[in-house]
């Protein structure tokens, strides 16, 4: 059972967390101005990198806060966690 360092609560077991997919995918400013393809990119398409990946996590059985984490998809190691609204930190994998 992996430990996930919640930026508000500290390290807690992964069973307390909920996964939220790729981070930094903002809700479009004006959806009506987008083409079908641009809108579909927002709704359906996400990155699937091999290596560091910025993701959203929610400490759903703890403080219930959403935060962001950079996870290395090859090792499952969490390289960084940061609060919602903060920029993605530089990481070395």
């Amino acid at each position: 059972m992996q430990l996930i360092p919640c930026p508000w609560c500290g390290p807690r077991e992964e069973a307390e967390f909920h996964y939220g997919g790729q981070a930094h995918v903002a809700y479009p400013e004006d959806p009506s101005a987008l083409t079908d393809e641009e809108w579909a990119q927002y709704v359906f398409f996400r990155e699937n990198p091999s290596g560091p990946f910025a993701e959203r996590w929610s400490h759903s059985a703890g403080c219930r806060r959403w935060f962001n984490a950079v996870r290395d998809t090859r090792t499952h190691d969490l390289l960084a966690v940061y609060r919602a609204g903060e920029p993605m930190p530089e990481v070395t994998s």
């Binding site: 909920h18 939220g20 903002a26 809700y27 929610s58 759903s60 219930r64 959403w66 919602a84 609204g85």
Partner: peptide, 13 residues
């Protein structure tokens, strides 16, 4: 409730 909190925290804080 999760859905509401997600939008409030991540898009419309």
């Amino acid at each position: 409730l999760d859905w509401m909190e997600e939008w409030l925290q991540t898009e419309w804080p």
